[in-house]
Simulated scan of single mutants.
Amino acid sequence: MYKVYGDMLSGNCYKIKLVLEHLGIAHEWIHVDILNKETHAPAFKKMNPNARIPALDLGNGEYLWESNAILYFLSQNSDLFPSDSFLQARVLQWQFFEQYSHEPYIATARYINKYLGLPKAREAEYHGKQTGGHHALSVMNQHLSSTNFFVDGQYSIADISLFAYTHVAHEGGFDLSDYPISA
């Protein structure tokens, strides 16, 4: 049985939980308190030397980290990952978009606000994340205006990757009513 080390408030961990539940994969969830720096403990760093959640213990001495890599591993040969190589590349395209154009803005603004309580010292950074976050939401909204899902009209790990932080974007100051398709 897989063990997942993470925090359910983290969008990157939530992605993993959604896939595990969708696919009916048995697993044990082990809470990791990032605010108490549990990811920096030596035992955790053996699983993930980058000291970030989530981490997936495969039960055979192997560990995976980075949420989208874990999604890829879990979704192989399932309805969440297409068999066509071009469509696989499209899934990866949206997952790279999520990691480089969406998550750095929306998740970071959410973290500063929700986890840290919007401290004065990080207000400028928080406000600086808004433009990039709104751009990402606009790109998603435009794409979803002509289809229900991100790749080939089918629910996939691309949708899960982008849903994880979008559904809580309001906690980072993003008004989703401006994006009716992606809300």
Rank of each mutant, 00 (worst) to 15 (best):
W29T: 03
L80Y: 09
A26V: 09
Y14V: 00
G153L: 13
T39K: 03
L23Q: 12
G61H: 10
S83G: 14
I181G: 00
W65Q: 04
L64M: 13
C13H: 00
V4P: 06
Q154K: 15
K129L: 08
H31V: 00
T39E: 09
D79A: 14
G59V: 12
Q88C: 10
F73I: 05
W65K: 02
L20T: 05
D175V: 13
L58Y: 07
S145Q: 14
L35V: 09
D159K: 03
N141H: 07
H40W: 15
I112D: 06
H143C: 09
A89M: 12
H31T: 12
K37P: 02
I16G: 06
H40D: 08
Y126Q: 01
N12L: 01
N113D: 12
S101A: 14
D79L: 02
Y179R: 02
E21K: 10
S182E: 03
A51H: 12
T147F: 09
K45Q: 15
Q93N: 13
S101D: 11
P82R: 04
G173T: 04
F73K: 02
D33K: 04
P82I: 08
D33W: 01
H22Q: 13
T147P: 02
N77Q: 14
S10Y: 01
M8I: 12
L23V: 03
K129A: 04
D175M: 10
H127A: 08
K114R: 13
L9Y: 00
A136E: 05
W29Y: 15
N148P: 02
A107R: 06
H27V: 07
M47G: 06
Y5R: 00
G132K: 03
Y115L: 14
H135D: 04
N50A: 14
D79I: 09
Y2W: 04
L9M: 09
H102S: 02
T108Q: 12
H135S: 07
I160N: 08
K114Y: 12
D152Q: 10
H143V: 10
H40N: 09
G24S: 03
Y72L: 11
M8E: 12
L64T: 09
C13K: 00
A55G: 03
S161A: 15
L74D: 09
H102F: 14
L144R: 07
I112Q: 05
Q93T: 14
E21Y: 00
F81D: 00
V168L: 01
T131D: 14
A89W: 04
E171L: 15
L64N: 01
Q99V: 09
Y72G: 00
Y105G: 01
G132H: 06
F150Y: 11
F44N: 07
D7M: 10
F163K: 02
V91H: 03
V168N: 01
M47C: 07
A183C: 10
Q93W: 06
P119T: 12
S177H: 13
E103Y: 14
T166L: 11
L92C: 07
E98V: 03
N48T: 07
E38A: 05
N77L: 04
V19W: 08
D159C: 11
H40Y: 15
M140A: 12
E62F: 10
